[in-house]
Nucleic acid binder design. Structure first.
Lengths: 285, 285
DNA sequence: CGATATCCATTCAAAACTGAATAGGCCTCT
DNA sequence: AGAGGCCTATTCAGTTTTGAATGGATATCG
């Protein structure tokens, strides 16, 4: 009869996912359990929180009225865990990193390999994913990205400057210094249209035409190597990619700064500190 | 392995009570369960939250660091329940009131009796207790007291003015109009020393001496009726108490205002509204 | 100094909860 | 119209969790 705080987590999951099955998957429980716990919660508060529709659960007025209480509870529970994790002085444990794909592959991998030898007790998980992982939710402990962090709870620093270069497949004819007419381009995904290197290309080679797009720099590099066209790549990637050569269009493409950030609560997490020290030693300067 | 939100409630209870047994009583669980759930919580967060001492559990640094997170979770959980209770349009259910003892007995009882006849589905619980019940915790739904409420989440109004009078046992000699030398007094508990009627007595009869104290106005009235001394009583009590008579010391003792308050979240609780309407109709002005 | 009262940990049978499987409803697609 | 998906509700066996009882350790009191 009394309210079980754990049931609020189930309430949240159902509210977010919309169906018992999806909520069950999200929480690692089973669909019947979700139904039962929700019923128990509704009974405890004496109110119907969801309207049962043909295909799922949708919040009633009462349910939406209290949704943000449950969200705040979740925030506090996450903070509770984070703050304790930040006091873990043990070096063993797990660290979850997030970065863009090429950065993870070409820049981070050697550093992580060295760290794994130094600290075999620490399991490192590197997620290279387009979506942003949340530091407050602890979806990641350490995030590398190309924009500064503006959240006040995140401690961040500029890690390194990444120069970019223009590449073509080795031996292929370099584009003439003109307006780019007839030059095939390999660029980022449309969703990344506003990125500095895309704008730069547009300015230097206004008449060039795009023949291939990808959100993955490695894919762009491979396409370039296959002779598909001209690509702007991070030099750490392009310079080590066999079969392509960097060309000079009379002006360097803009570089980018890379930032690394982690949650304040994890400031004292020994293994995070150890990894960060190594990352800075190897990459910053 | 994942954190159970319900275990945070157990964490809070142990932190407050200091022992597993007391915490178990507070939550209506058993002592072994408290121990097990706490162990599970500590395991889930990978940190020792309590130091096991000879006689009880005391928070470690880690535990105190996260205590206020648990408290905020509790606040939100209470708000969650309150807000839903406030939407309960059902007239049936329970209402918990709190007032001073004499007020409950002499003023509230007739109103509550009338309400019980009008709304037999509503169970009314009247707590007359020196300690203050918390509206945010919903220890009480409706509180009557002699001071205004200053909490912003409480909706309150002045209910009625209570005049006070000076009483002696019927037939007993009235104190002379002098400084009170030789007059025996019955007053409030020492902890209520600063109350207006106590200060007023001190000014009118500075030489009078206290022979009996109680925190209970009814007890004071009975003592007075037994001829023990002079008492200042609320007139609704004194005027209806057989065996005592009101006397005139040339100046009226100060009266007091009574206030009634309830939590905003319960604004739409139909049965609370119904009771309050009756209370105001019968008592206000 | 022994009696009593706490406290926590452990044991063990009973109760509660869980998840796989299943049934039934609704919708879409062919 | 029938097949296939996706949804919830129900059933039922297996696991987990619970609380009463018990034991041991420590402090308090007469």
């Amino acid at each position: 009869m009394p309210l079980e705080w754990s049931d609020l987590r189930i309430f949240l999951a159902i509210a977010r996912e919309g169906t018992l099955g999806a909520a069950a998957r999200a929480l690692g429980l089973s669909q019947p359990t979700m139904g039962r716990r929700l019923r128990a919660l509704e009974q405890a508060v004496g109110q119907t929180l969801f309207q049962r529709t043909g295909d799922g659960f949708v919040l009633t007025d009462e349910g939406s009225a209290v949704l943000h209480h449950a969200e705040r509870i979740e925030d506090e529970a996450l903070a509770f865990q984070r703050q304790l994790a930040g006091r873990d002085q043990q070096l063993d444990g797990m660290l979850r990193l997030s970065s863009s794909d090429w950065f993870g592959i070409h820049i981070l991998t050697p550093v992580l390999a060295a760290f794994a030898k130094m600290q075999p007790g620490v399991l490192i998980e590197l997620l290279t994913d387009a979506r942003l992982y949340s530091l407050p939710r602890r979806e990641a402990d350490l995030v590398f990205r190309i924009q500064p962090f503006d959240e006040p709870e995140v401690i961040s620093r500029r890690l390194m400057h990444i120069p970019y270069g223009v590449y073509v497949a080795s031996g292929l004819e370099h584009p003439r210094g003109g307006d780019g007419t007839g030059t095939p381009l390999i660029t980022m995904d449309t969703t990344f249209g506003g990125m500095p290197d895309a704008l730069w290309l547009k300015r230097i080679l206004p008449k060039a035409h795009v023949v291939s797009r990808s959100n993955n720099r490695d894919v762009q590099g491979r396409m370039c190597r296959e002779g598909v066209g001209v690509a702007v790549l991070p030099r750490p990637l392009g310079d080590t990619l066999p079969g392509v050569e960097r060309i000079d269009l009379g002006e360097e493409p803009p570089g980018r700064d890379t930032w690394v950030g982690y949650h304040r609560d994890l400031k004292r997490l020994a293994r995070l500190r150890a990894l960060l020290d190594l990352v800075i030693e190897r990459l910053a300067n």
